[in-house]
């Protein structure tokens, strides 16, 4: 947009990016294999799908523990504290403002990478949907050794949550195109640097801190 200056911010550290793309890969593979196990299509064969699904699922579960540890230690968990402030502004922006050339009501900063709507969505995903999926997945994997556990309710929740995750993935992918250019958000998640409108004064230390030229 003419007349507005752009600035580069280092939003996502190498670890975060690596984690994001690893998790993306794992989740997508879990979806592909999981829905084959669910009987929606035949791709790699039921037994291969089951084995892959179990392997990736366990790997994800293990690595997620380290991500959670990282969140706590670094204090990055604070990025997920939900807030209603500006929540409705953001909602209104996506429902109306975006079609009318308005500015996004919230700018990203390294201290606040997620807008209030994202915070709520990601909190829901990370704190609810993913743990539910992991717990039911683990129960699904272990139910035979647990004794007295019925598979039906586990499968009910696990499958339902899987559909909701596909729903999330579609919207998530679409939302990446709503940056100042179609791919600016994706570029940010690949390089760590995101180009944003310089509407918010970013403190010198934030931009300079990692700038080693």
């Amino acid at each position: 947009m003419a007349g507005k200056t752009m600035t580069n911010v280092y939003l996502y550290t190498r670890f975060e990016r690596l984690w994001h793309w690893c998790q993306a890969l794992m989740v997508i593979f879990l979806m592909i294999t999981g829905f084959e196990v669910h009987g929606l299509y035949t791709l790699m064969g039921f037994d291969t799908a089951v084995e892959l699904h179990n392997f990736i699922g366990l790997f994800w579960l293990g690595s997620f523990a380290f991500f959670a540890f990282w969140l706590i230690i670094t204090g990055e968990w604070k990025q997920y504290i939900p807030t209603t402030r500006k929540l409705f502004d953001v909602a209104r922006y996506y429902a109306w403002g975006i079609f009318h050339g308005q500015d996004h009501p919230v700018q990203k900063t390294p201290g606040a990478k997620h807008n209030p709507l994202q915070r709520l969505a990601y909190l829901g995903i990370s704190a609810m949907l993913l743990p539910v999926q992991m717990v039911t997945g683990l129960l699904y994997y272990l139910y035979n050794s647990l004794g007295g556990v019925s598979l039906a309710p586990i499968a009910f929740i696990h499958t339902l949550a899987a559909f909701l995750l596909v729903n999330f993935l579609i919207i998530h992918l679409y939302m990446t195109t709503t940056g100042h250019s179609l791919f600016s958000h994706i570029k940010g998640m690949i390089t760590g640097w995101e180009e944003i409108y310089d509407t918010t004064k970013i403190q010198e230390w934030e931009t300079k801190a990692t700038r080693k030229t």
């Binding site: 009987g39 598979l151 039906a152 499968a155 499958t159 559909f163 579609i170 919207i171």
Partner: peptide
């Protein structure tokens, strides 16, 4: 009397799932 992955499904789960997925696609 048993749930068998691949054979069984809950109609309501698959219906909600279909609505969630198609709804998201239509929405975006």
């Amino acid at each position: 009397g048993i749930y068998m992955p691949g054979r069984d499904k809950f109609a309501i789960v698959d219906t909600i799932g279909l609505i969630a997925v198609l709804g998201a696609l239509a929405g975006v």
